[in-house]
């Protein structure tokens, strides 16, 4: 979206207070420069804008974003590492009128739980899976995940991810997009303001897909992790743009 700055704004500027979704019960406890709280915020805003706050259940995996369970004013099942799409399936099948989403990291979804998400997508399970992909195990201090990009330094690939030694990163959204049960699949990034707005539109479409009963939806969101990338905080967005966003590409992969 291009914002026209040649004249006064058409819409009144938002008050700062408007920027805090009422579904947030407190401050997050993640590192400065982290992209995950940004993703959480747009996710919660989408729930409010779609007016489904009181018919939504979140299923949260394990990673830094697990701490969001304490600050999200949403019914939540905190589940085992990687298993969120399976748990979400059980919830959705017995409460089809409730919007069910998962919130998982790349370690959770691409490492521990790849088969859970692929099978849920193949079944066309009417849920929305959200993967926050920062290419690193942030919670445990910066080790290599299945989505760590080539050349990226982590504590378990200290000289950079080498395909000869560590293999290649997994493009989760692309894998999911290849399955017939997927009705909406997109990959966004929160490294720029425009990217945040785009990712929010993707989340909105994903939830709308579920509300329409159209099938499985997934949004992969690339999020900054300067701590786990061992780069200065302020360089997180630039680093992400030059590495992960080059590897994975941003955009919609499936719209049905």
């Amino acid at each position: 979206m291009i914002i026209d700055t040649s004249g006064p704004p058409v819409l009144p500027a938002k008050q700062v207070a408007d920027f805090k979704p009422s579904l947030l019960l407190g401050e997050h406890s993640l590192c400065p420069g982290c992209g995950e709280p940004v993703a959480l915020r747009i996710l919660l805003e989408v729930l409010q804008e779609l007016d489904i706050v009181q018919r939504t259940i979140g299923v949260v995996g394990h990673g830094c974003y697990g701490s969001f369970v304490r600050i999200m004013d949403v019914d939540v099942l905190q589940c085992l590492h990687g298993r969120a799409p399976a748990c979400a399936t059980g919830i959705k099948r017995v409460r089809p009128g409730v919007a069910v989403f998962t919130l998982q990291g790349d370690g959770d979804m691409a490492n521990e739980g790849l088969q859970e998400v692929l099978h849920a997508a193949a079944r066309g399970e009417n849920i929305t899976c959200v993967m926050l992909n920062n290419g690193v195990f942030g919670d445990t201090g910066g080790q290599q995940t299945a989505t760590t990009v080539l050349g990226q330094r982590t504590k378990t690939s200290i000289d950079g991810r080498d395909p000869e030694l560590h293999g290649y990163p997994i493009p989760v959204a692309d894998l999911v997009a290849s399955l017939r049960g997927s009705a909406y699949v997109a990959r966004g990034a929160v490294s720029t303001a425009a990217g945040v707005l785009q990712a929010k539109r993707m989340l909105r479409k994903a939830f709308q897909t579920q509300l329409d009963g159209a099938g499985f939806s997934l949004v992969e969101i690339l999020t900054m992790c300067p701590t786990g990338w061992f780069v200065p905080t302020a360089e997180g967005p630039t680093y992400q743009q030059g590495t992960m966003e080059q590897t994975y590409g941003i955009g919609e992969l499936v719209t049905r």
Binding site: V53, Q54, R55, V69, R70, D75, V76, Q78
Partner: peptide, 24 residues
Amino acid sequence: VLDGTGGGTGRSRQIWTWAMGKAN
């Protein structure tokens, strides 16, 4: 039981092995 109705009420429910509760 999680029925999805707790969102935004300040009394949303959680099922969590670590039982750390909500900020409020």
